[in-house]
């Protein structure tokens, strides 16, 4: 009953929509919905709201944020993938939705490569390896030695099974040939709390999220995963400098739309979004939160997403990480 009603509704909607050809000159002729497949208040939601707010004055129609949370963004992303590529349904989501979900959720109803057109990678932030304040190691070398001395014993807090910081830890273990116990939490904040309280030993956390805790001496920072040193911690080395290659990882946020966006509409959206991200009203605010502005074009973003999907698929496979079903 529900199914057939949905089908009927969908059919009618399609009829109405196909009756009108899309002309880019007319775009946008009605409000544009930006789906955020996470709850209000999270990183993806904040990026979406801030960027669209700055973009709004130069955009002829309202940009409306719609939160469709569920399954690391898979619920909302599936809906975007199935929507009509007319530029009136867009999405702002995270690395998990675009990249790791594809491997971790084999049943997901979308494939970021086949079903989505990227508009821009909005921002990225490297992770930092942090430890509890009284941890004996003071640099990565000592830390790895400690891990090797006590295999499968140190507690690595993460913001969830399959999250970007869990996978970063996994990659770190793989690259250094070490083992530890993964302790997942429900989000970054409780994981950080337990590292500070000494209830967990170490964690990979977004630099922006832990910067202040390190400055207050409540955590120790050993290294960052970026390609270059973090402006917040010019004295802290990158893993690359320390000779650990392949750990230049970032968490990132990106805008996209369903596959098959008309070229001129896509260009218009790319331009609007990247200009907003680089605007003096927004850029310093995002940087204060620990983000680096990427704001590349859609083609570059497409290539980057494909690369990230393959890279994390390998980490997940090598680490034998499964979200059992």
């Amino acid at each position: 009953m529900l199914k057939s009603l949905h089908a009927l509704a969908g059919g009618v909607a399609l009829l109405c929509a196909t009756a009108m050809p899309i002309v880019a000159q007319d775009y946008p002729s009605k409000p544009v919905t930006v789906i955020v497949p996470f709850a209000p208040g999270g990183a993806s939601d904040t990026i979406a709201r801030l960027t669209t707010q700055i973009m709004q004055p130069n955009f002829a129609q309202p940009l409306v944020i719609e939160n469709k949370p569920g399954a690391t963004g898979a619920v909302g992303a599936g809906e975007v993938a199935r929507s009509k590529p007319d530029g009136y349904t867009l999405m702002q989501a995270s690395i998990g939705t675009y990249s790791t979900n594809l491997t971790l959720q084999p049943d997901a109803t979308y494939d970021a490569r086949k079903d989505l057109d990227m508009l821009t990678i909005a921002v990225r932030t490297p992770n930092a390896l942090v430890t509890r304040p009284d941890f004996p190691a003071n640099n990565v070398e000592e830390f790895v030695a400690e891990l090797k001395k006590k295999p499968d014993a140190l507690l690595f807090a993460s913001s969830g099974a399959g999250s970007s910081d869990h996978l970063t830890a996994e990659l770190f273990w793989q690259l250094t040939g070490t083992t530890a116990i993964h302790v997942p939490y429900k989000g970054g904040a409780p994981a950080q709390t337990d590292v500070m309280g000494g209830h967990a030993d170490a964690s990979f956390q977004n630099v922006g999220a832990i910067a202040n805790f390190v400055k207050e001496g409540k955590m120790k920072i050993l290294a960052v995963t970026g390609e270059t040193r973090s402006p917040a911690f010019p004295d802290v080395p990158t893993f690359k400098e320390l000779g650990i290659e392949g750990l230049d990882v970032y968490s990132w946020q990106a805008f996209s739309g369903p596959k098959g966006l008309p070229a001129d509409i896509r260009t218009k959206l790319e331009k609007g979004l990247t200009e907003a991200l680089n605007s003096p009203d927004l850029k310093p605010k995002l940087e204060a939160m620990g983000y680096e502005i990427v704001a590349n074009d859609g083609a570059a973003a497409d290539a980057f997403v494909a690369q990230e999907i393959d890279r994390w698929a390998k980490v997940i496979k090598d680490g034998n990480i499964k979200l059992e079903n």
Binding site: A9, G10, V12, V64
Partner: peptide, 10 residues
């Protein structure tokens, strides 16, 4: 701003 259609697809 609850995204509920005022008039539906019909």
């Amino acid at each position: 701003g609850v995204p509920m259609p005022m008039f539906g697809a019909l």
